[in-house]
């Protein structure tokens, strides 16, 4: 069980959160102009690193805010945590 240090609520169990995936994915800024390749890349091809990863977690049962969490996918070690949109 991860103990995620929510910047608002304090340390809470992982079961209070919903995982939101890679925090670094960027939606094409101009959808009309985006190529099929750019859309496919945005929707389907994400990095799957073994090691440090910046990811989104939603604190569903707490402050109901999206957090950006640094987590090592190999050791589960947590780094900096901040509100995604303060």
């Amino acid at each position: 069980m991860l103990l995620i240090p929510c910047p608002f609520c304090g340390a809470r169990d992982e079961t209070e959160f919903a995982y939101g995936g890679d925090a670094g994915v960027e939606r094409p800024t101009d959808p009309e102009a985006a190529t099929d390749e750019a859309w496919t890349d945005y929707l389907c091809f994400h990095d799957n690193p073994k090691g440090p990863h910046r990811e989104l977690w939603f604190h569903r049962d707490g402050c109901r805010r999206w957090l950006e969490v640094e987590r090592d996918t190999w050791t589960h070690e947590l780094g900096a945590v901040r509100l995604s949109r303060p």
Binding site: G62, C63, R64, R65, P86
Partner: peptide, 8 residues
């Protein structure tokens, strides 16, 4: 009045 979140 109970504070539940940064803006809630």
């Amino acid at each position: 009045l109970i504070r539940l979140g940064p803006d809630e």
